[in-house]
Design a protein around this nucleic acid. Structure first.
Lengths: 194, 194, 194, 194
DNA sequence: TATGAATGAGGATTCATTCAT
DNA sequence: GATGAATGAATCCTCATTCAT
């Protein structure tokens, strides 16, 4: 695309990740072959194996790089008091994190069946449960738990399932965030009451 | 498993659909091979091709059979007044419909990337938009639209993303339905106000 | 095409041959499946097996029915004096026979590789050699033998290789016949001279 | 057969073409499976796909390599005056070219039905029409056009249809060439006269 | 840092054929 | 005189992966 072979020396690993994520998000993991990735980069398949041990490892490395902010977010959240303020802040930041790695999360959402069997499935699941445990007490009322999960799903879905609603993406994100915040707030109130 | 060859004559088509859906939902569409389906049924792959023209057709036929109730629901909804009562009734029935074909909808949710490229992608999309148009005026405030979509996603997600929350499935469904109803109600009120 | 199931009762065998030859000639023997033939006739594949033991048998039966006139021609030729007059008459009649079963002969020409392995390969070969032995003495000069074979090939090729030359088919056949006759005549003169 | 794995490194592509052509010519294109080709070469089917994208591509590559001389011949012929001398020279050279790639042309002749549907069908057709347009004016008398086409067919057929005439192959070729030259000559005279 | 050449396993699909009804 | 259901063998082709260079 943008450079001669000389210019791109040294950043092949990165370029592989970029192209791979683009294709994974577009067509799914299984339907994207290493041949395709290699062709787009104008290298051979074998070159991919110089940089990554397996196809799955490409995906894992992408996940590890892009999901790091969320890990940080959870770490941070765990140390805060479980106040409503904290929770609101968490999902605010989570929403931003999602927006910052939207291709990855779109991929995760659309390829759940695949991801489940892969190593990142476990990684992701763990993170999600970490998040949930910050947002809601596991002993809270069932309905409040549902509200929390619903909030999280709303954030996820908000990134791509709403493409047909025409609105400025940033505005849309704000609206999504507001709905999620409402849900979290209700869940929080519910807990206190009980 | 349960029958001799004689006994199962005449319902092979049905049995293929059953086993296929089970495997599709369990492992994903791409990862499920026709060999696998055939083996489970103790027939040859060629037998599958006697009943269905392609692998995709198996899936389509399953979808057409199981998603019919939803089609009816939408049809019905379109003829009702757009009152809050109608909307509540719609999502109540929708929730039931989902529960009645949960394996299919779990499959749809977890294999979005795959489904997108397949014929059922379009079919499903159309139905969803039909539903949405009953629940919310396309000219409503952005946030109310988000609430509606959020409600729908909550219903979907409620079926399988909540497996780790231990609760009686039917109770869980009720809780999910309540949250969704709340969202719809808020959206409805929002519309009236504006 | 032309009839209800009732009307076509009793002539299915014939209809199979017709459709089969049409498809064989159009797409080749290997590329034509029994499914295709059955579909065009609106019967099942199994019905074909009621009338013919194998796919090859369909072809053989067609050949036997349509190539009969040529067999007669050869029989007749063998009993005539080997005069130029006889030879001319032979190829004149042969040209007519070809025109009368042009689809079959077009098929034979275009599917030589296939036909070679089939039973009709031998049948056809035998007939051709019978014809040749009438037209030329096996001990004649090499060049005269070539002329004879060339004449036969000209007749064959004339039926379909000349489709791009626009001319009335019957006129074309006449022209082809004339060229072939010339060749035979030359060959005959050559023989006498030696 | 003749070499260890080490020895044959680097010329696999070529060897595939050789074996493929041999089998295609012997048994026909459809009846020759890639498995068969691979087995003869003692490589896997996948190895074939490393060198050629499809089965058809193997054939196309063979054609392109072997039919090149004829292309040159046509090019040359187009620039010459349309004299009898030129025409004779053309078919003389054409006869040589055919002899030089006899397996390919035998294949083309015996697999016309197959070839028609393949890409090389068009390629071949174009070449043949190029040749014809050099040999005869499209507005010439019908019979003279037939003579030209007959000459070409005689050359083609002469390569394999005459196997049962026992004679030294080179002598046979000469005889065939002579007959074809006669036909061309007659056609040329005919044109001048009209 | 890469490539060229190859593999082994498996994919979906098609085919001619069979046979009980 | 035909069908419905099924089979076994084969097809082309694709994939992730390996390894010597």
């Amino acid at each position: 695309m943008d450079g001669t072979k000389q210019q791109r020396r040294g950043n092949t690993r990165q370029r592989i990740q970029d192209v791979a994520l683009e294709l994974f998000a577009e067509q799914g993991y299984e339907k994207t072959s290493l041949r395709e990735i290699a062709e787009r980069l104008d290298v051979t398949k074998a070159a991919l194996y110089y940089h990554f041990k397996t196809k799955e490892e490409i995906l894992v490395s992408i996940f590890e790089d892009l999901a790091r902010p969320i890990e940080g977010l959870i770490e941070w959240g765990k140390e805060q008091p479980q106040s409503l303020e904290t929770k609101r802040e968490i999902i605010r930041r989570y929403s931003e994190a999602l927006a910052g790695a939207s291709r990855l999360f779109r991929f995760m959402q659309e390829n759940q069946a695949t991801v489940k069997e892969l190593r990142i499935g476990e990684l992701f699941r763990t993170r999600m449960m970490g998040l949930r445990d910050i947002l809601i007490d596991p002993k809270a009322e069932l309905i409040d738990q549902v509200r929390c999960v619903s909030a999280m799903f709303t954030l996820h879905a908000g990134m791509f399932a709403l493409n047909d609603i025409d609105a400025d993406p940033e505005e849309r994100r704000k609206a999504v965030l507001e709905v999620a915040t409402d849900l979290i707030t209700q869940a929080h109130e519910g807990m206190k009451a009980s």
